[in-house]
Design a protein around this nucleic acid. Structure first.
Length: 317
DNA sequence: CTGTGTTTAGCAGAAC
DNA sequence: GTTCTGCTAAACACAG
C-alpha cells in the first residue's frame, strides 16, 4: 500500500472523499461551521493536492454541499456580512462514516421527512430552536460558568473510552492542529458554541452529562499520535480498528446548525435567537469563544426536550 | 464580475 | 446484475 509522505499527502490525492474533507473542515472550526471559502482554505492548507485544479474540486465540493443532506446551510447574521452562508454538519451525520473513519462512508445520510419529532414544519423548527435556547440557557444558569466543549457528536455515550478511530475526524483534526512546537490550535480549547443552544443536550439525552471526555482530549491525541500519525502524517497504516466513536445507536447531538434545506423555516427561527439570548450574540469568531457563556436565563431547567437522537435519521438504502 | 449555491447528467468503482 | 457512492462537468440563478 503506498504510504503518503511523512508530513502530508504531499501532492498525492488524499484518501478522503469531498464529503469527508468538508466534514473535517467544518469539524475543525470552533463553531462547527464554516463559510465555503474557509472550507476551501482548510483543504488547501492541509492537502497540497488541492492547491491545483481548484475549479474542478471546488465545484465538486459545492456540489456535495448542496446535494448531501449531511451538510446544512446556516445563514449569516446581519453583523457578519459576506458572501455565502455558513455550512455545518447535520447533527445526525456522524454515523455516516464506517467505523468512525472518514476514509469510508457506508451510509448515505438522508433526512427523513417522516420523522415525527423532527422539526419538519416551520412552526416545529422555530419551536424546537426556542426549546433548545431555553435548555441551553438553563444549563448556563445552572453552571454559572463555562459551557462544556461543543461537539457535533455525542461521543461520550457510546464510546466512553478515549480511543478514537485513527481516521475519525477528531483524530485527524487534532493531529493536524497539534503543533509539535507547542502551538495548539483552537481545537485544543473548549468549544465555543456556534449558536448557543443545544450544547447541554448531552445532559438531556445522556446520563454521562455535560462532558466531552475524549473530544480533543490529550488522551485522545496521544492515542492518535501513537498510531504512526504524529506530525500530521496521514498514514493509513492502522485504520482497521473496529470502533465507532461517532454518534451511534441513535445517540446523536445537534451542533445547532439550523438546517435550511431540511427545514426552510429555520431561518426566521434562527434570526429570532438573539431575542432569546440577549447579549449573547453567538460569535463566529474563534477569538471570542466564550461569548455565549456569560449569560444567565430565567428559563427553567425543567424544560425538557425529547432528545436529539430522535430528530433525524440516517437512512440506508 | 466573481463567488456561491443548485441542479442535472454521466461515468467508474465498490458493495450488496 | 443492481444499487449505491463518489467524482466530474456543466449550466443556471442569485447575491455581494
Amino acid at each position: 500500500m503506498p504510504r503518503p509522505g511523512r508530513n502530508t499527502y504531499s501532492d498525492q490525492k488524499p484518501p478522503y472523499s469531498y464529503i469527508s474533507l468538508t466534514a473535517m473542515a467544518i469539524q475543525s472550526s470552533p463553531e462547527k461551521m464554516l463559510p465555503l471559502s474557509e472550507i476551501y482554505k482548510f483543504i488547501m492548507d492541509r492537502f497540497p493536492y488541492y492547491r491545483e485544479n481548484t475549479q474542478r474540486w471546488q465545484n465538486s465540493l459545492r456540489h456535495n454541499l448542496s446535494f448531501n443532506d449531511c451538510f446544512i446551510k446556516i445563514p449569516r447574521r446581519p453583523d457578519q456580512p459576506g458572501k455565502g452562508s455558513f455550512w455545518a454538519l447535520h447533527p445526525s451525520c456522524g454515523d455516516m462514516f464506517e467505523n468512525g473513519s472518514f476514509l469510508r462512508r457506508r451510509k448515505r445520510f438522508k433526512v427523513l421527512k417522516s420523522d415525527h419529532l423532527a422539526p419538519s414544519k416551520p412552526s416545529d423548527a422555530a419551536q424546537y430552536l426556542q426549546q433548545q435556547a431555553k435548555l441551553r440557557l438553563s444549563a448556563l444558569a445552572a453552571s454559572g460558568t463555562h459551557l462544556p466543549p461543543m461537539s457535533t457528536y455525542n461521543l461520550g455515550v457510546s464510546q466512553p473510552s478515549s480511543f478514537k478511530h485513527p481516521f475519525a475526524i477528531e483524530n485527524i483534526i487534532a493531529r493536524e492542529y497539534k503543533m509539535p512546537g507547542g502551538l495548539a490550535f483552537s481545537t485544543m480549547q473548549p468549544m465555543p458554541a456556534a449558536y448557543p443552544l443545544s450544547n447541554q443536550l448531552t445532559s438531556v439525552g445522556s446520563p454521562i452529562g455535560a462532558g466531552w471526555p475524549h473530544m480533543y482530549s490529550s488522551t485522545m491525541i496521544d492515542t492518535a499520535t501513537s498510531i504512526s500519525m504524529a506530525g500530521g502524517d496521514y498514514s493509513v497504516s492502522a485504520y482497521g480498528v473496529p470502533i465507532k466513536p461517532l454518534c451511534h445507536g441513535g445517540q446523536t447531538l445537534p451542533a445547532i446548525p439550523v438546517p435550511i434545506k431540511p427545514t426552510p423555516a429555520a431561518v426566521p427561527a434562527l434570526s429570532a435567537l438573539p431575542a432569546l439570548l440577549p447579549n449573547s450574540a453567538p460569535s463566529l469568531s474563534p477569538t471570542s469563544p466564550q461569548t455565549a457563556t456569560s449569560q444567565s436565563s430565567p428559563a427553567t431547567p425543567s424544560d425538557t426536550l425529547t432528545g436529539p437522537s430522535v430528530l433525524l435519521s440516517v437512512a440506508v438504502h
